[in-house]
Simulated assay, not measured.
Amino acid sequence: MTDEQTRRITDLGTLKALAHPLRSQLYRALVVARTATASQLAEQVDGAVSLVSYHLRKLADAGLIEEAPGTQRDGRERWWQPASDGVSIHEADFGDAPEKAAAHQAATRLFYEQRSELYRRYLDERSTWAPEWRAASSDSEALMPLTAAELTELTGELLAVIRKYDEQGRAAQAAGDTEGRQSVALHMYGFPFRA
């Protein structure tokens, strides 16, 4: 995934479209699946197909997802895919008006809560995973004295490593190398705090 393949959300309408609890779940599920129908996604989020279809159309209206070309098997199925390899949202793009800042903060909190829930679910189910997956899973914290410029540099270097592994995994998967592959979530936060 390159920066060009990641869509930077800079407008309030698109942010609000994604920052809906069900829509952000659907978007995440679609990024993992790469293509899916409303019925398939409804099973994953335990929702009604009609409600999921409505929210998928809202994501499409915002340009976050699109119909997947060449996947329709009959006239009733509508297959969807992400419109980019991911999205990025930066506080700097929403700080020029109170409404935009509040929407950005609410979206950030929602995404954090959903990521936390994903990790809590893993912790609850950890014993059901094979030993090699339990050993490979990590939970760490680093407390470092950095400048803002150093944190920016560190984040860029870590994202480059993540992109490398994402591209390798997707290429292998596209080539049919699916043995032993699982969807993996890697959450990374870098922020200042007062001791």
Rank of each mutant, 00 (worst) to 15 (best):
G86A: 03
S140T: 14
P82T: 02
V161F: 13
S39H: 04
Q5P: 00
A33D: 08
R76V: 05
A19Q: 10
L59N: 02
A17L: 01
T108F: 14
D74A: 03
G47R: 09
R120E: 11
L146I: 00
R7E: 12
R163C: 06
A185P: 04
V49D: 04
A148E: 05
G190P: 03
I89V: 15
R34Q: 11
A107L: 04
L59I: 07
A171I: 04
E91K: 07
A107I: 05
R78N: 11
A60F: 04
K164F: 12
E99G: 01
Y112K: 08
L18M: 02
E153S: 15
S53Q: 06
E141N: 08
K58P: 03
G70W: 11
L158V: 15
L51C: 00
K58D: 10
A42Y: 05
M188G: 11
E179L: 12
L12S: 08
R163H: 13
F94S: 03
D46V: 05
R134A: 07
D96R: 11
A195T: 06
R194I: 13
A60K: 12
A175W: 06
S24Q: 09
E117K: 14
A149P: 04
R8T: 15
A19P: 09
T128A: 08
V161C: 05
L151M: 14
R7W: 07
G180F: 04
V32S: 08
L151V: 13
L12M: 07
T35E: 09
G190D: 01
A92N: 07
M1S: 14
S116F: 09
A106H: 10
A42H: 07
D166Q: 12
A17S: 13
A195Y: 11
E67I: 00
Q173I: 09
D124F: 11
D124K: 14
R8E: 15
R8S: 15
L158A: 12
H20K: 07
A142I: 08
R126E: 14
F94D: 02
D124V: 15
K100W: 03
R194E: 14
H104D: 06
G70R: 13
A62E: 00
T71Q: 12
H20A: 09
L118R: 10
E67M: 04
